[in-house]
């Protein structure tokens, strides 16, 4: 690579990547420094391992890490798994496809907080869902469905909110696959699942990675859904961090914050690598 070409690439990167590095760099620097005892808002500042040592040792810390990873990964996989068949189905227009596509994408334009609030009303003890189940005779009496301990309601809402996002990305990618390629695969006798593994997935791996990663990070750091409809016997990392921050424990909050960043990063790399290894290898 010549010097001139390198300069050209750098010039192209500077408005996007350059801005990110400067802006986020400052913020990350301060968060990391705080987790080691620097930049205290109140009291003395100075290097210390103690916030990390004590922080990681807390039971609630590990619980929050485990729980957030569960929510992040489950939401990402389910959203993408649901989006694929829909994207393929909507690949070519047919009567009614516009309406279907609009219904599916509606969640993008309903605020997360609004969705959580409406969802809560539907599944509440005397909500319409319970009343219907009792009327149908499926439930003997209303059941307590809100804040369920396996976070089913929360993951339902995460998927509902994020699936359209994956759909948006995947639709573009799937539409870019030419019919010739799909036909060729079919002529070679590949079944639907085979076709997905050997043709569709490898050709859309970029969009798949993007959807997985973006949904994973969003769900991992979720706060609003967790505090309204999440299980009351679990805390997400963002919730745990806010809990610390609200009590003025900035250094402890920074430990959780840095953990959250590290998990986002590690999880994203893992998802990117796994999806690439799983599907790029099959190409050709």
């Amino acid at each position: 690579m010549t010097l001139g070409r390198a300069a050209y690439i750098l010039m192209l990167l500077s408005p996007g990547i350059g801005l990110i590095v400067v802006f986020i760099g400052a913020v990350v620097y301060i968060a990391v420094a705080q987790s080691f005892g620097y930049y205290n808002l109140i009291g003395e500042s100075g290097f210390s391992w103690s916030f990390w040592i004590e922080g990681i040792d807390r039971k609630s810390y590990l619980r929050a890490v485990r729980y957030s990873l569960y929510v992040g990964l489950t939401s990402a996989f389910l959203s993408v798994a649901l989006a694929y068949p829909l994207a393929l189905w909507l690949r070519k227009p047919f009567p009614g496809s516009m309406t279907i596509s609009a219904i599916l994408k509606a969640p993008l334009l309903v605020h997360g907080i609004v969705a959580a609030f409406l969802f809560l009303n539907v599944i509440s003890y005397h909500g319409i869902l319970n009343q219907m189940m009792v009327w149908l005779g499926i439930f003997d009496e209303p059941r307590r469905l809100q804040n369920d301990e396996h976070a089913i309601g929360l993951i339902f809402l995460q998927v509902w909110k994020n699936m359209p996002f994956a759909l948006l990305l995947l639709t573009g990618a799937v539409q870019a696959i030419s019919d010739d390629v799909l036909n060729a695969a079919q002529d070679l006798g590949a079944g639907a699942w085979q076709r997905f593994l050997t043709v569709i997935a490898p050709l859309t791996v970029s969009a798949m990675q993007a959807s997985l990663i973006i949904i994973f990070i969003g769900a991992l750091a979720d706060f609003t859904f967790q505090t309204t409809i999440g299980p009351t016997n679990e805390r997400s990392l963002a919730q745990y961090m806010t809990f610390m921050k609200d009590r003025g424990r900035w250094n402890d909050a920074a430990v959780v914050g840095v953990t959250l960043m590290a998990l986002s990063l590690a999880g994203s790399v893992l998802l990117a690598v796994v999806s690439r290894l799983a599907f790029r290898g099959r190409r050709k």
Partner: peptide
């Protein structure tokens, strides 16, 4: 006993008869 999500959640569910 039941753990609720917030002050408002508690009162609303009480008023609704839960």
């Amino acid at each position: 006993y039941v753990i609720t999500a917030s002050n408002a959640d508690s009162i609303t569910r009480l008023s609704d008869g839960e």
